[in-house]
Design a protein around this nucleic acid. Structure first.
Lengths: 169, 169
DNA sequence: TGATTATTGACACGGTGTCTCATCAAGTGG
DNA sequence: CCACTTGATGAGACACCGTGTCAATAATCA
C-alpha cells in the first residue's frame, strides 16, 4: 500500500491545544464523507474499504484490528485480514481514526477524534472519553530548552474506571 | 513465576511529582545492590538472573527483551528466552527497570529510573532522558471531576531528536 | 545433608502484524 | 462504452512477540 504523506510518524503529534478540557462528543463523520475524504487524498473508494468504514464508524469505544476482522467476517466473509489492517492504517493516516493504547498496552483504534486529542479510557469496559486539553506543551518547551532535543511529539493516555465500572461502596 | 505485590498495574502510576524538570543522571544501582534487593523481596539470586541484571545495567538507552536475549545468548547460550522475559518483568516490579514505549509504539525497558518518571526518547538513536516533572496531575484532577472516572494511572512519553541526531543545518 | 520449593530451559502455542504475489477492479482516457 | 493502467485485494506464509506448560534443576533453610 502507498500511504501518502504518512511515514512512520510517532503515535501522536502535538499540533495545537485548547486550554480547557472539553470532553467533546465524538464528531463521527458520515461514511460518505469518509469516502470522499479518501478520494480527495488520492485513494480509491472500494467495497472492502467502505465495509471497514461502516463497521468502524459505528463504534464508540476503542477497538482492535482483530475485532474489526472478526465482526466484518460475519457479513463479508471474503474480506482479507490484511485489507482490514491496511484500511485501518489508512483511516488513521487521514485522521478518521486515531491510535490509542489500552491500559494493558495493546494498541487499538478509536473513531471520530480528529486533531490533537488524548483519551481517558476505562480499563474495565473500555469506554473512552476524548479530551483536547494537553498539559504537555509547557513541559515540552522546558525539555526542549534543557536537553536540546528537538521535540517531535508525545504520547499521553489516561486510564481509570468509568462511573459504571467503579465498585459500589 | 510469582510476582509479589505486582499485579497487572498500568504502564505507569501517578504516585508523586516534582515541580521542576530535573533530568536526573540515571542512578544505576550496582549488580550487587540489585541482587540484594531481589533477596529482600523474597526472590532468589540465581546465575541467569545475575546475567540479565549485568547485561541490563550496562545499557543507557531503552532496549527490548529480545535485544537482551540476543546479546545474552552470545555469552550464555543456554539461557532461556522465557527466563529473560520473566526476569525483566521481575526487575520492573522492583523498580530497577521501567517500561517505556518507543516512538514506533514498541514496548521497551530502561534501567535506572526508579519512582515516577517519564522519558524523552530520541526516535532516531534511542537515547533517553528521564524526567520526573509530570504535568498530568492537574489534568487528572479536572478529568476526574468532570467525567466521574476514578483515575488509576497514565502513560506519557515524549519523542524527539537528540542533539546528535538532528540534521545539521 | 536432605527436603522444599522457587526457578529454569525447552518447547509449543496463540495473537499480531507484515509481506508477497497473482488476481481483480476502480478510475482514466480514448 | 471499452480497454488500459495501476492501485487494491485476498490468500497464505511468515516473523515476531509474549505466555503457558512441565519436567529437571538449583537455591535456600532446617
Amino acid at each position: 500500500m502507498l500511504l501518502r504523506d504518512f511515514e512512520d510518524r510517532p503515535l501522536c503529534y502535538a499540533s495545537g491545544m485548547s486550554q480547557v478540557p472539553d470532553h467533546d462528543a465524538p464528531s463521527v463523520p458520515s461514511p460518505e464523507h469518509v469516502a470522499e475524504l479518501l478520494v480527495r487524498h488520492g485513494y480509491r473508494s472500494t467495497a472492502p474499504r467502505r465495509a471497514v468504514v461502516a463497521d468502524v464508524l459505528a463504534r464508540g469505544r476503542p477497538f482492535t484490528a482483530e475485532e474489526v476482522v472478526a465482526n466484518l467476517r460475519q457479513r463479508v466473509p471474503e474480506i482479507g485480514r490484511a485489507t482490514v489492517y491496511r484500511t485501518l492504517e489508512l483511516l488513521a493516516s487521514v485522521d478518521v481514526l486515531s491510535r490509542v493504547l489500552r491500559s494493558d498496552g495493546h494498541p487499538a483504534y478509536i473513531a471520530g477524534t480528529p486533531g490533537h486529542r488524548h483519551h481517558l479510557v476505562c480499563s474495565d469496559c473500555g469506554a473512552a472519553v476524548a479530551f483536547s486539553a494537553c498539559p504537555v506543551d509547557e513541559l515540552v518547551r522546558d525539555l526542549s530548552r534543557d536537553t536540546r532535543f528537538s521535540i517531535q511529539g508525545h504520547l499521553l493516555e489516561v486510564f481509570g474506571l468509568c462511573p459504571e465500572c467503579q465498585p459500589t461502596v
